[in-house]
């Protein structure tokens, strides 16, 4: 196990380096720069600006400088927000997105796995139809529709919540609900599909034949194997949910990091793009590692291979 994790860590470090390198050069080849504006700045001023940020250096030099400061844990200054550093922006905003993400994740897991399990064990009954319909509706109505609909209904017409904002605990309810449902829907479908696959297998039949209660059969035997696809899905999904959602954070005016993933690209805020990419890459690699460990635990026959 220790060897396995060490090896994965080294592999991931290499992968991270490749991600950083590729992203560094990609953002610079995209048309438009951080100082491209509708009212053109004069060439002299543009030169002065670029000199300030070291953009007048050859690209390889900038790349090495970036790696150098990265090694010191410094993600550089933001181009869009001159008086803030990328470190600051990330440390300011990640907790917000993570808080929203954690609540949404809880909603998603309880709703998604719960409904999916119910649907699978009561297959082709009305329970299944209701649960499955929930999943399909959740998938087919995108968050940018659900969000405004809930705001109109619950905030404007009933006056229960703020239309948007991130001040008190009540402000967490609507965005967490929308984001939670958005993930619960696919989770419920995957859980149902995965469980159905397992419920017909021999070891479950054997367990049933031995007189185990249905509850025990499901929780002890079926869920372990049946949740394999769910767990695979959860790796990237949790990374996504914890780093916030562009749509939800924009609709609900939430000061999270999710918006920066998209906005930094649009602003050509090179350093912030890289900062967010590094954040996401680290999370995705850690979570995919966690998934692999979880799957080995869920299925004792799978060994961790380094």
């Amino acid at each position: 196990m220790f060897r396995f994790i060490t090896s994965r860590f080294l592999q991931s470090l290499l992968a991270l380096f490749l991600v950083i390198t590729a992203t560094f050069f990609m953002v610079r080849f995209v048309p438009g720069g951080p100082f491209t504006a509708e009212k053109a700045v004069t060439p002299e001023i543009l030169r002065n600006l670029e000199a300030h940020y070291g953009l007048d250096q050859p690209l390889w030099r900038q790349y090495l400088d970036y790696l150098g400061s990265l090694a010191r844990g410094d993600l550089g200054p933001s181009f869009k927000y001159p008086n803030r550093t990328v470190n600051e922006i990330i440390f300011d905003k990640v907790p917000v997105s993570a808080e929203l993400g954690a609540i949404s994740l809880a909603v998603a897991l309880v709703l998604g796995i719960g409904l999916g399990t119910l649907a699978a064990i009561r297959r082709n009954t009305w329970v299944d139809y209701v649960a499955s319909s929930f999943g399909m509706i959740g998938i087919s109505i995108p968050t940018f529709v659900v969000g405004p609909l809930l705001v109109l209904a619950l905030a404007i017409h009933l006056g229960w919540f703020n239309a948007s904002g991130w001040y008190g605990p009540a402000d967490r309810v609507l965005p967490a609900l929308v984001l939670g449902i958005a993930y619960a829907a696919p989770l419920s479908r995957l859980t149902r599909g995965g469980l159905l696959e397992v419920l017909n297998q021999d070891f479950i039949r054997t367990a049933r034949a031995k007189g185990a209660s249905e509850f025990r059969v499901v929780t002890r035997h079926a869920l372990r194997g049946g949740l394999l696809p769910v767990v695979s899905f959860l790796g990237p999904a949790v990374a996504g949910i914890l780093t916030g959602s562009f749509v939800i954070e924009t609709i609900f005016q939430i000061p999270g990091i999710g918006r920066e993933f998209v906005n930094s690209a649009f602003n050509r805020d090179y350093t912030l793009v890289l900062g967010t990419v590094i954040l996401y890459a680290v999370l995705i690699m850690a979570l995919n590692l966690a998934v692999d460990i979880a799957q080995a635990w869920m299925n004792p026959k799978v060994r961790l291979e380094s």
């Binding site: 405004p148 705001v151 109109l152 905030a155 404007i156 006056g159 703020n162 239309a163 948007s164 904002g165 924009t250 609709i251 609900f252 005016q253």
Partner: peptide, 16 residues
């Protein structure tokens, strides 16, 4: 700093 005009309009309606 509300970026979305629709969000703004809804906040206007709730008095925010």
């Amino acid at each position: 700093p509300v970026e979305l005009a629709d969000t703004e309009e809804r906040m206007f309606r709730t008095g925010q």
